[in-house]
């Protein structure tokens, strides 16, 4: 355990969620797509540039008194497939699991194809999720094009 990890642990939370093993460059994306930047209700702590044996450099997010919906965990999985979600109750980790790539995502990713109907009409986007060489690829259920560098709405 490094000094940084210890520091993070000092600020352990009583109830809530700890998202650990986030690749350092995914931290701000997660903050944005989960709307944490708009959330003034829950107290939260972000840790960036922490040392990680697995990732080299990792980030961590702690949110007090908030638990994640499966749809939110799916979003995190797309951006940070290495992340681990811990559910904390009364200072104890009661649940801990690695995020899993969903087979299908609906709604929050934008199709990269400018000619896709979802970019012109009020249509909810949908993608099947594939993995190639550790890279996540999304195939649009409408235009059938593959989006690899995706934008989360």
């Amino acid at each position: 355990m490094t000094a940084n990890d210890k520091y993070m642990e000092v600020r352990a939370i009583e109830n809530g969620t700890v998202i650990d093993h986030i690749p350092a460059d995914a931290l701000f994306k997660i903050i944005r797509i989960m709307g944490l930047d708009q959330d003034s209700e829950h107290r939260m702590t972000f840790g960036a540039n922490l040392e990680s044996k697995r990732l080299g450099c990792k980030a961590i997010i702690k949110i007090n008194d908030r638990y994640l919906e499966p749809a939110e965990i799916n979003k995190i999985a797309l951006i940070a497939p290495t992340a681990v979600v811990n559910t904390i109750r009364n200072f104890e980790v009661v649940e801990k699991h690695a995020v899993e790539l969903p087979q299908e995502v609906r709604g929050f990713v934008k199709c990269a194809n400018p000619a896709c109907i979802t970019n012109h009409q009020p249509v909810e986007t949908g993608f099947s999720v594939m993995e190639e060489d550790g890279k996540i690829l999304l195939r649009c259920r409408y235009c059938e094009k593959i989006t690899s560098r995706f934008e989360i709405k």
Binding site: A115, I117, Q121, V123, R141, Y142, C143, E144
Partner: peptide
């Protein structure tokens, strides 16, 4: 026939 891709699937 439609110029937007995915219109028929939708």
């Amino acid at each position: 026939r439609h110029s937007l891709e995915g219109a028929p699937r939708y």
